[in-house]
């Protein structure tokens, strides 16, 4: 499903709403939302990433635009500001926009009709609308996935994360707008993050195969546990902009697969010290 780039006229495009969700907290949803949006923008798609985590605003920090927030998602839902006043253009990529949320309100401010109106308006301008979901299965999380056309389930290779992901996949299949309207189901993909092949080999983490067997949804990618992710978050740079880091390359691979390309899975085997490396003592 290769999508045409932003260069083409907007009339023949159907914008896609992509929910980044997981159920469990702390698995890397916001990192993934930022990296995915950056990756899509790098591929020439006009992309906006929305923070649905009302009251726990983080996306602006991860995107490095926290000092430029004036109006937010809730202001626009309530009609206190218009869309273009609230959208923040990324300084590194012209295709990338950030739509921050409110830190002072809570999830109840996410009125479904208001969210729908804002998403419809965004669809006029963007190819991809990435929704960074809050943790949990309550109102905020359900609102973030309700309008989704596609979903990326972020999972860590451990049992509680996998079970929560399973729950969220069930909610996508039963409570999304597509499910309610009997439309084709939300296109659901799995992204395995914080994967440490060495610990998997020792049996301390679930393998890619274990997780896939339990969740039985297509695997979009495996993001290795990497220092570069923490560094990226702290410096406000989406990790996909860091093409030198394994995590950055893994995210770019995942974006390519999401756009319909075939790419071999990387970073799933533990790094071996090869024969020559041992022989010559190279690290």
């Amino acid at each position: 499903m290769t999508r045409p780039g932003a260069a083409r006229g907007r009339e023949d495009l159907v914008a896609k709403v992509v929910a980044i969700t997981s159920g469990k907290g702390g698995v890397g949803k916001t990192t993934t939302a930022a990296a995915f949006a950056a990756g899509l923008a790098l591929r020439g798609h006009k992309t906006v990433v929305i923070d649905f985590d009302v009251g726990l605003r983080n996306l602006d920090l991860v995107m490095g635009c926290e000092r430029r927030v004036v109006f937010d998602f809730i202001n626009v839902i309530n009609g206190d500001a218009n869309l273009n006043q609230a959208l923040i253009k990324d300084k590194r990529n012209d295709n990338l926009y950030i739509f921050p949320t409110s830190q002072t309100r809570d999830k109840d401010a996410l009125k479904r009709e208001g969210v729908e109106r804002v998403l419809e308006e965004l669809k006029q301008q963007f190819d991809f609308i990435i929704c960074d979901s809050p943790a949990g299965i309550e109102h905020g999380a359900v609102t973030a996935l309700y309008f989704a056309d596609a979903a990326i389930i972020v999972t860590n290779p451990e049992v509680s994360s996998v079970r929560d992901s399973d729950r969220i996949i069930g909610i996508l299949a039963s409570r999304s707008r597509r499910a309610e309207r009997n439309e084709p189901p939300v296109e659901t993909n799995l992204l395995l993050t914080r994967y440490d092949p060495a610990r998997v080999a020792k049996g301390e983490m679930l393998t890619v195969e274990d997780v896939q067997e339990i969740l039985s949804v297509p695997l979009l990618g495996v993001i290795p546990e990497s220092e570069s992710v923490l560094r990226a978050s702290n410096t406000g740079t989406p990790v996909a902009f860091d093409e030198d880091s394994p995590a950055g390359r893994a995210y770019l691979d995942a974006v390519a697969r999401f756009l319909g390309e075939q790419r071999e899975m990387r970073f799933v085997q533990p790094e071996r010290r090869g024969f020559f490396r041992v022989l010559f003592g190279r690290a």
């Binding site: 299965i137 079970r163 929560d164 399973d166 729950r167 996949i169 069930g170 909610i171 299949a173 039963s174 339990i214 039985s216």
Partner: peptide, 22 residues
Amino acid sequence: RSGTQIYARGTDLIVTAAVSAG
């Protein structure tokens, strides 16, 4: 999926896919 309940009232239930924990 986890968190789903299916009740076959007054009859048998046949499932052809995995039934998750929970």
